[in-house]
Design a protein around this nucleic acid. Sequence first.
DNA 1: CGATCTACCTGATGGC
DNA 2: TGCCATCAGGTAGATC
Length: 278
Amino acid sequence: MPELPEVETIRRELERDVIGKRIKQTTVHGTRTVRRQTKKQFISRLEGAKITGVDRKGKYLLLQLDTGDVVIIHLRMSGQLLRLPNKEPAIKHTHVVVTFTQGGQLRFVDPRTFGEVFVVSGENLAEEAPELATLGVDPVEEPISWTDFARLMMANPMKLKAFLMDQNLIAGIGNIYSDEILFAAGLRYDRMTDTLSSQEIRRLYRALVETLHEAIKYGGSTLADEGYVDLNGRPGEFQEHHKVYARDRQPCRRCRRNQVTKAKFQGRSTYFCAVCQV
DNA sequence: CGATCTACCTGATGGC
DNA sequence: TGCCATCAGGTAGATC
C-alpha cells in the first residue's frame, strides 16, 4: 500500500513520538510478520532497548536502538503502524505489539501479512538486510542532480514506469506515484528512458521531486479502502490532488477534454492522459 | 537479457 | 442473500 510519501509521513511522526522511549515488552502473534528470525530472538533483542533514531530508505523504516541493533519494518500492501494506549483492545490482524516503559504502544497491523518486521545488527546491516544494500537513491532523503538522474536513465534503457518503480535504481516510488509523476512530466508510461530529450529528462526529474514533496505535505494518499492511515489512524489527503490515479473515464484535469485512460502495465493498473502525455 | 507470470494473503466490490 | 470472479499501495522468484 504505502509508498515513499506515506512511509515518510509515518517516519516523521515516529521521530516526534518514539525517540527516547524504552521498550518494556514485545509480543508477536502468528508466524508471518516476524519470519526471518524466531519470535524469541526478535523479542529478546527489542526488550530493554531504547529507540534512538528513526530513518527511512525507500519504503523501509529503520528504528535505531541504543544496543546498536536496527528494527527494520516494511509495510508492503496492507501494513499499518499505529500508536495506541495500552488499554485499547487489539483490532484484528495485529501481529506485533511493542509496549514502552513510559506507557503507550506501537502496533503493527497487517491483514494481508505481506509486511515484515525484523531486527538486525547495525554493524552488519548490509549482510543481514541485503535488500536494503541494493536499494537505489532515495529522491527525498538524498537528492541527486538532474545530470546524475539523466545518466541513470541513459544507463538503464527501459520503459519509464518500470524505471521509476525499480527500487534498485530509485527507491520509494510505487504504482500511484509513478503514474502521478509521469502525468506531471507530460510523459507516457511506455516511453523508453533512452529516448528522452534533455528537456524531457529535466521535466521528469522536476516532476518526480515535486510530486513526492507535495504528497508528503498532504500526508500521503489514502484510497477508498482506507488501507493507509498514519501513526494516529488518520488518512492522508493527497488523493484529493491525484490527477490520474484511479480517475479512469473521468476528464483529464489538465486538458479537461480527454478521458483518463486505464491500461495494464506489468500486471498493474496504469492511468494516463493520452493527449497530455506523449 | 527483458517481459510475464505466480505466489504470498485478506477483504472489498460488483455481477448474476 | 449467496456465490464467484476480480482487484488492491509490493516484492521475490520462476519461467518463457
